[in-house]
């Protein structure tokens, strides 16, 4: 073509070629190095998870062989006679976590909506800072708060009212001594609200301004804009904040141990004492005597791992369902 005369000479001359190639190679090596380093980091996470599961699996061998699947179904926890069953702990773990969510989600969502959409910016920044501080408070502090502040309030004021109004329901039957599923759920709720608030607020703030303005341009009120445009846009992110909170609630150990009563029983009443997986491991591991006892506790850890995985997977499935419904709708 005629244009070849005007274009600069192509780098095909024998002298240029090796130099250019090595430069190219350098770049290529840089890319490869970056890939390898980041890949190694990602691999570490997978490796740790695999090692964790492998150790838990291997170290619980005795208990697994002794009880089989019956371990999950049995509610017999008797270290003296070497009889171990996980059911009361699974029940307590799942019950307290979900109860905590029921209390914390409305409060957390409401607070997040207020902070992101309705509050004046300065007030919002101050409150958000305080809420993020709350998220950093060690859980043993929450446990102490639970014992010395929350339990008396629950015992003297809240539970009598609940029993007065809903006393006919089995979940509020029986005597209340303070330590219980309900108290544990309340402490957990207080602990996970900051998570829900700070993550949901970020998600709400990330909703494009154009969505708000488009809604406003239709003559919508501030609340319509928030509730019908901003929240639906952010709902997946807000659901994500709930999953994180749920994971925290399932695994929380110290605060729960301090207020749940540590009795391995299954009762319908939320007001009776119970136990959770994390709590029993923390309480009994140091004093476990005998290989089977230790193995049973390690198997409990494996169960907790599985419960957390299953619930997270279910939550994710739920979210996928929400998404496909949204696009199909």
């Amino acid at each position: 073509m005629a244009s070849t005369a005007t274009t600069p000479p192509a780098p095909s001359s024998a002298q240029d070629a090796p130099e250019k190639l090595s430069l190219l190679e350098k770049f290529k090596k840089g890319d490869e190095a970056a890939f390898l380093i980041t890949f190694a980091s990602a691999l570490t996470i997978i490796l740790i998870t695999c090692l964790l599961v492998q150790r838990l699996w291997a170290d619980s061998a005795l208990s697994r062989h002794a009880f089989g699947w019956h371990f999950l179904a049995s509610s017999d926890w008797d270290p003296v006679n070497d009889q171990y069953g996980a059911l009361p702990f699974i029940y307590g773990t799942v019950l307290t976590a979900f109860l905590a969510l029921i209390i914390a989600v409305p409060v957390g969502m409401g607070a997040a909506i207020f902070l992101a959409e309705l509050a004046p910016r300065k007030l919002s920044n101050v409150l958000t800072f305080m809420i993020e501080l709350l998220a950093a408070v060690p859980s043993v502090i929450y446990g102490l708060l639970g014992i010395f502040v929350l339990l008396p309030i629950l015992r003297d004021r809240i539970v009598p009212v609940l029993q007065g109004v809903f006393g006919f329901l089995p979940i509020f039957k029986g005597a209340f001594y303070g330590v219980s599923y309900f108290s544990a759920a309340c402490v957990l709720a207080i602990m996970i609200v900051p998570f829900i608030v700070s993550i949901s607020r970020e998600v709400l703030l990330a909703v494009p301004q154009s969505q708000r303005e488009a809604m406003m341009a239709l003559g919508a009120t501030k609340w319509d804009v928030t509730w019908k445009s901003v929240v639906p846009y952010a709902q997946r992110g807000m659901a994500g904040s709930i999953f994180l909170a749920l994971a925290r609630a399932l695994g929380e150990t110290m605060a729960v141990t301090m207020v749940i009563g540590n009795v391995p029983s299954i009762t319908a009443s939320l007001l009776s004492p119970g136990y959770t997986i994390a709590a029993v491991i923390a309480n009994e591991f140091t004093e476990a005597t005998g290989d089977l006892y230790v193995n049973a506790l390690i198997e409990l850890a494996l169960v907790l791992f599985a419960v957390t995985m299953i619930i997270n997977a279910l939550a994710r499935l739920l979210m996928l369902g929400m998404k496909s419904q949204e696009t199909a709708h």
Binding site: A217, L218, G219, T221, S229, P232, Y233
Partner: peptide, 21 residues
Amino acid sequence: PTLLRRRVGMVFQKPSPFPKS
């Protein structure tokens, strides 16, 4: 403002449909 904006509609530079049908 709400009544005014109902009578004075607005369309923006970037299409901004709601994430709905």
